[in-house]
């Protein structure tokens, strides 16, 4: 799948701009020229959400009442989808596919993509939440039904949290019991996702001739009996503190690079590790159906010249559409197949 063309109206700094896109797009420009905005617009038409803000009002150009991004997506050689994502000052978002209103969920299901940004450094070296989200996205790419396990689990978290905050205790055992099978299943799916990612990661590192083996460790309790026992153990402290202390939404996800905790690695190694994780994600998504679009926003800033060259060669050999933003023009030997957009 790829984005054939894209138009932006009143989107951030652009009043009106449009481009036809090839399979290898490089966006070049100085700070503030709108490189990230174009990458953001690409992700918006594929997934209905911005990777820079949760509040789409921020994307509307100052003084304009609304904004939209329009694109023609080429699913295969002959099938096209016209997608429009619009937003207004009330914070309302409208997604149209072939002039019909669709949900964000159905958009994501039909148009796989991977976004790689400098924020991914947090995914490697920051708190476990980013790593849990990453594994959940991989698990979702493998099996869309995973959402039917995650959604009721998150509902459980809200219900249990309300109960613990209320200071009342009736119903705690029953809510816990209802969540037991969900907890086991989420952990099993994340384990599968972690195994798949680390195997692909090894292949990516091998291709780049980089010694950077990754390992992901997760809680091992997946058995109903064990989970039940842990929930029972924590119940008294949870009541005392008025908050949840156990469950997949709090699980530690340890990532190690070259056998030691990733957060202890150098910033160049962390940035390269994050990039390789995203390449592994793209490779897994490709197995699941249509080839994803890979959007990379200024990811080379923390890498030295050698790692930058290796990362570019990995990006360049991806058999899918890539849209990358760069600050400097003379950074790489781009090759003749690259479409340059200079801002």
């Amino acid at each position: 799948m790829r984005i054939k063309n894209i138009s932006l109206r009143n989107f951030r700094k652009f009043t009106e701009i449009s481009f036809d896109l090839s399979t290898r797009v490089v966006i070049l420009g100085p700070n503030g020229s709108g490189k990230t905005t174009l990458a953001e617009a690409g992700a918006l038409v594929l997934g209905g959400r911005s990777f820079r803000t949760a509040d789409l009002k921020e994307c509307i150009r100052e003084g304009a009442p609304y904004a939209f991004v329009k694109a023609v997506l080429l699913l295969d050689d002959i099938t096209e989808n016209a997608v429009t994502v619009g937003m207004d000052r009330k914070g309302q978002r409208k997604i149209l596919r072939d002039e019909r209103s669709v949900t964000r969920r159905s958009l994501v299901a039909a148009h796989p993509f991977v976004v790689c940004t400098q924020e991914d450094i947090d995914m490697v070296a920051g708190s476990p939440k980013r790593r849990r989200d990453f594994l959940d996205k991989i698990a979702m790419g493998h099996d869309r039904d995973y959402i039917d396990i995650l959604t009721p689990y998150l509902r459980f978290v809200k219900q249990k949290s309300a109960l613990l905050k209320s200071g009342r205790s009736g119903g705690l055992t029953h809510l816990n019991e209802a969540a037991v099978p969900l907890i086991g299943e989420i952990r099993r799916r994340r384990r599968m996702a972690a195994d798949a990612v680390t195997a692909r990661f090894a292949g990516v590192a091998d291709r780049a001739s980089v010694d950077i083996a990754a390992e992901i460790r997760l809680p091992s309790e997946t058995d109903d009996g064990e989970i039940r026992a842990r929930l029972r153990e924590r119940a008294a402290r949870e009541k005392e503190r008025g908050c949840l202390l156990y469950g997949p939404h709090l699980d530690e996800v340890h990532l190690s690079l070259k056998g030691r905790a990733a957060r202890l690695s150098s910033s160049g190694e962390i940035a390269f590790g994050a990039f390789c994780l995203r390449i592994a994600e793209a490779s897994l998504l490709q197995d699941g159906g249509w080839p994803p679009v890979f959007i990379a926003d200024e990811i080379f800033s923390f890498m030295d010249a050698e790692r930058r060259a290796k990362a570019w060669s990995l990006l360049d050999e991806l058999p899918i559409q890539t849209i990358s933003t760069f600050h400097r023009e003379k950074e790489h030997r781009w090759g003749s197949a690259v479409q340059m957009i200079k801002l």
Partner: peptide, 8 residues
């Protein structure tokens, strides 16, 4: 989740 908790 509410139905399952009530059933339990």
């Amino acid at each position: 989740i509410e139905g399952e908790a009530t059933i339990h």
